[in-house]
Structure formats: C-alpha cells, structure tokens
Design a protein around this nucleic acid. Structure first.
Length: 569
RNA sequence: GCCCGGGUAGCUCAGAGGCAGAGCAGCCGCCUUGUAAGCGGCCGGUCGGGGGUUCGAUUCCCUUCCCGGGCUCCA
C-alpha cells in the first residue's frame, strides 16, 4: 500500500514536471514500485533527483488521498486523452471502477492507499527503463521509472546496503576478481572466455555431473558443433527456432548451422542401428557446446550467452517407462543440487491447457504423462507449482528455477517429455509383439548449462568454493627466499596426491602473500619457514578462520584435505 | 531487437574545448621477512572504433562496436 501510494506520488511529480505525460500502469513490486509513463519530453538518469525532489514536495503538501467511485462513462470522459487508460477501462466492469485523487492529481486505481500524501515513507528512485505497453514489442515504448519505498529512512538505508552487498556477490565481479572468465569485444558478444581457473571449475563441474550420470546408467556421446540445416528442417526446429539460430554457413548447395540444440543429433545416433524394446531405455548424454543467437540486448554475464554448454541428455523409452525415467532424472538433479548445497530453487511443472488445442499427441497420452510427472514429483517429495497452459506443444515439462543475486530468475535444470520429435525423425524400436513403435523422448539437463550454473554457483558461494571445487586448493607461502626450495617440495608432494597447489614465489613479504591469496579465497594457505623445513611440516592457515594456525606433517595435511575433497564437503 | 545510461593505463576510478592524472597491478632495485598491504625508482594511454564541427576534440554532434539497467524471449 505504501509502495503503491509512493508510485502515485511519483506519477504526480512526473505529470507536474512534464505536463502532457500520459500515465499507464504503476504497480507495487518487491521492495518498491514502478510506473510506466508516456513522457512528454525525455527523462534521463540526471532527472531522477529532480523528480524525487518534487515527490518530497508532494509529500509535504500532505494532500488527502480520496477514493471516488465512478461510472464507466465518467472515467472514460476523464481519460479521453489517454488511450492507455481507456484500454484498461474497457476491460473493467461498470460499477466497480474507482479513482483516487490527491489535490489536482487523480489516477484510475483499485487502491487502497495511505490517508494522505504526507504518509508516504522513505523512498528512492532507482533506475529508468524502457517498457513496451502491455509487454508487447509491437506497442509503443514507455518510460518505466523504478523506485524503492520503505516506512522509515532506516529501512531504506538497510535495503540499499543489502543491494550493495548483493552487487559484491555478482558473478561478473567475482569472475573478474578471481580470474575465472572474461569477455572480449574482439571475440564477440556473449562468448565467454574461460581463464585457467574458470576452466578448472568448469571441468570439475562437468566431470562431477558426468560421474553421476554414468552411475545412473547414462551413456555419453558427442555430436559435433555444426549440422546440416536439413536436419533442423526435418525436426521442425528451423521453422520454430530460426530467430535463435546463427545464420547458415554455405558449402555449395549444403547449408550448415551452428548447433543450437542436440536432440536431432542424438536421435540420429539412436537411428544408427535398430532397437529392440529390450534396449530401452536408451540414455544419451552430452556436454554439448551450443550456439544461440540471443538478441544483443539480452546478453548478461554468464547467465545469458551465445556460446553455451548444455549438460544435455535424451532418454528414449516406452510410454510405460516415462515415469521411472522421469524419476531417475529427478534423482540425478536432486543429488547434484544437494551436493552443491543448493536449496534455493522452485520447481515449475508446465502442463497443457485443457482448453487449448495447440498440443500434439492424444488426450490420453498427455493425461497419463502429466499424472506420472506429478506422482514422481510427489514421491520424491519435491514441492512444485503447476502452471497450466505453460507446456510446450510437444509435451509437459518440469523446470528448476533459481534466482541470481539481483533477484532475476533463471531456469537451470529441466526435464521435458516429448511426444513429437521421435516420430518426425523416424525413431523406432521393435516391440515385444514385433510391431515397430515410436519411443517417447525425455529431454533433460541437470545443471542446465555450465555457464549459467557457474554464475549461480559463484553467487551462491560468494566465490568461496568448497575445497573440491576450488581452482586452487592450497598455496604454499615461503617466509623468505631461502624457503622457496622447501615450498616447492611441499607442492610436489601435494600435487602428486592430486591436489591443486601453487607456490607463491613473489618478491613480497609473507604478510602480503597472505593478504593476496586470502583475497583469492584460497582454502588453505601453507606457511613454511625454518621451523617447517626442518620438521617436514606445514603451518596451515584455513580460509575463514583468520589468525588461527595449525602445524602438521605434510602427509597429515594431504590426508585431511583429500578426505574433504572426497566427500565434497 | 527496442528504451535509458556508460566506455579514460591490465584493474578501480578522477579529470576537462588548449601538454592526459591517482592508487593498485607489472618491471627494476633495496629489504630476507612468522600470519591480511615493507621502501624507492621505472614503464604504462590512438581517452572503444570511424566520421563531422572547431584554429584546436579525449571533451560538442553523428555513426558503429562493446558493457550495464530494463522490456520481450529463453538454458
């Protein structure tokens, strides 16, 4: 209510500063509000303080906020110059229309509101954005002003501080600080470049998922980076997905496309030989580099890129096996997310709209699949939100959604049932009764893509990766030059035990080396001087435990850390 | 793609129509160190690219690329 009233105060301020501007909608949102306005003139970031000033003035006037019921005809007259509001009014029932007034200002609004403009609390305008009227890019672009509002100044400050802290955890910042990845305009927008440490992390993430998949009976395949465009004509992707594909490369009459998804390729692998029902389910997994032509304005850090690596898999199975395979995929996803200590996600189950007719395959197949998916989720005790009408035309799906540090939601894991593609691409198996049948296809991704999941992971851990995931697990810090040799022998021993270790041989004081490596969030700093080289020990300083130090034999350190790596704690 | 903002040294950032700056990093030297910045010196820039206005542009204008915040769309 407070936020909504603040939005009105802002709308009033804007209409006073920019007479002739047309208001559209201005709802409260998490932590604040926004208002979409067709501004007469142009607002830039520099104008925000002026608008805030005016809002304060409006607040000081302490105008009573009055509710007024109006007939449809009356409001239409009131808004005769505002096509946006007229459009809104058109959707309203006569007799159920209210307008709120404060001084000369009025706004079509259901309310409720605070009693006077003097009752708005602490607020701050945050940023400007363009927004299409009703979210449709064919409509006019309006100016959206975002603000935050709180009952007290103190709460506002606390919120702004939280925002600041969140920005510190932003994967783009940490990725730079920890030398994980970078971008180069010379290479291209949306094509992340992984530095040695970032590649180590990728590799660890992928081998882990690979191991889990292998344990759950998946086979790994590989299908290249480009494919004949005809394949996508057959699969139907070219028609539906063309805007997301890079333009073709031509070789004579043959056109190739950078691979935007793996399903058709995996189906060709399936088709490489005849299958009996005894073979099923067939599970093909691939860490596949895909290229998608995302609109330039849409690229963001590692969460939205043009070159991405999907931990994709396709399961070919009979209708009777759908539920079990879906459950198996859920189990893999859960195991992986649990290992990462990742619990802050929601599961969305996208179902067909019983009214709509865009769905292929028959009613029973859908009904059965949807029921089995629900059952499997319930049996796995995974809470989910059913979204009716959100399903793809080829089948229902379950998506795991997570938020980044700035509150933006991203899809990670996904499991999709597909009744369509296997048929289009001629996938078959011979059933028990000797008939040729089309298998059902499950598409699933565990972490989604390595890039996006890394982004979420970096923010989840704030760069403080568990030891098994840390690109550098320990740095040996010689106290002076004469200890470098011993430091190297320590490193050798640790490396031979499979740990990722470096020696900090820079010409710096021990203090500075500690500082720099601590900033790199290295889990273990091993200080070695006269004492340690005589004893064959290391003095261990553990990340996050400050000055606390513990001397131990090198072998003892190896044992402890290896155990920690082993159980991924 | 569209709207708004931004791009100055490897990084973080200051500056301004008239000789381009700081800290950190890097390099060289001194120090030889016991748990979060030792000291000194040096190097470092087509002020994102192209075009225009001007006696003169890094600064003003146009354009293009890239980045950020949104909208739409998606892993």
């Amino acid at each position: 209510m407070l936020r909504h009233s603040t939005a009105h105060a802002m709308a009033q301020a804007v209409t006073e500063l920019y007479p002739g501007s047309k208001l559209t909608i201005g709802p409260p949102i998490q932590d604040g509000f926004y208002y979409d306005i067709e501004v007469d003139g142009r607002i830039t970031d520099d104008d925000l303080p002026r608008i805030e000033e005016k809002m304060r003035e409006v607040a000081e006037r302490g105008l009573p906020i009055m509710r007024e019921e109006m007939s449809k005809a009356e409001v239409e007259e009131l808004y005769k110059d505002n096509p946006y509001k007229l459009e809104l009014i058109n959707d309203l029932e006569d007799g159920d229309i209210t307008v709120y007034r404060q001084g000369d200002f009025f706004d079509l609004c259901r309310g409720p509101h605070v009693p006077t403009t003097g009752n708005v609390g602490a607020f701050k305008l945050q940023n400007l954005a363009g927004a299409y009227w009703r979210g449709d890019e064919k409509n006019t672009m309006l100016t959206r002003i975002y603000g935050t509002a709180w009952p007290t100044e103190k709460q506002l400050k606390a919120y702004l501080r939280r925002l600041e802290e969140a920005r510190e955890r932003d994967h783009r910042k940490i990725g730079k600080d920890l030398e994980l990845f970078t971008f180069s305009p010379d290479v291209g927008a949306g094509i992340p470049l992984f530095l040695p440490k970032g590649e180590t992390l990728r590799h660890l993430m992928e081998s882990y998922v690979r191991d889990v998949q292998t344990r759950h009976g998946y086979d790994h395949v590989w299908s290249g980076n480009i494919a004949n465009q005809k394949l996508y004509e057959k699969s139907g992707h070219l028609e539906h997905y063309i805007d997301d594909m890079f333009p073709p490369m031509e070789d004579g009459d043959t056109k190739y496309r950078l691979k935007p998804m793996n399903c058709p390729s995996h189906m060709m692998i399936f088709n490489a030989r005849a299958h009996s029902y005894r073979d099923l389910p067939v599970r093909y997994a691939e860490f596949a580099t895909l290229y998608r032509y995302e609109k330039s304005g849409q690229l963001t850090g590692l969460t939205r890129v043009r070159a991405l690596t999907q931990d994709d898999a396709h399961v070919f199975c009979t209708e009777d096996q759908v539920q079990e395979e879906f459950a198996r995929a859920l189990e893999i996803i859960r195991e992986v997310l649990d290992t990462y200590g990742f619990s802050d996600y929601r599961v969305q189950l996208s179902l067909r709209d019983p009214e709509g007719g865009k769905y292929i395959a028959n009613e029973e197949k859908w009904a059965r699949a949807e029921k089995e998916l629900r059952d499997a989720l319930e049996r796995a005790k995974i809470p989910y939100e059913p979204e009716v009408g959100e399903a793809a035309f080829y089948g229902p799906k379950a998506d795991f959604m997570a938020k980044d540090v700035l509150g933006r939601e991203w899809q990670l894991s996904t499991i999709q049932v597909d009744f369509l593609q296997p048929e289009r691409l001629g996938c078959e198996y011979v059933s028990e009764d000797g008939e040729r049948r089309t298998p059902v296809l499950l598409h699933r991704a565990v972490t989604g893509t390595t890039e996006r999941f890394m982004a979420v992971l970096v923010e989840h851990f704030g760069g403080v990766f568990p030891v098994w995931l840390s690109p550098t697990q320990a740095v040996v810090i010689p106290i002076s030059d004469k200890h470098v040799e011993y430091a190297e022998t320590v490193k050798k021993k640790l490396s031979e035990s499979g740990l990722r270790v470096e020696v900090d041989g820079s010409v710096n004081t021990m203090q500075k080396k500690i500082r720099e490596n601590a900033r790199q969030k290295v889990p273990y700093l091993l200080i070695v001087g006269d004492r340690e080289s005589e004893e064959g020990s290391v003095n261990v300083r553990k990340r996050g435990e400050g000055k606390k130090q513990e001397a131990m034999e090198v072998g003892e350190f190896v044992r402890r850390v290896s155990a920690e790596v082993m159980d991924k704690s």
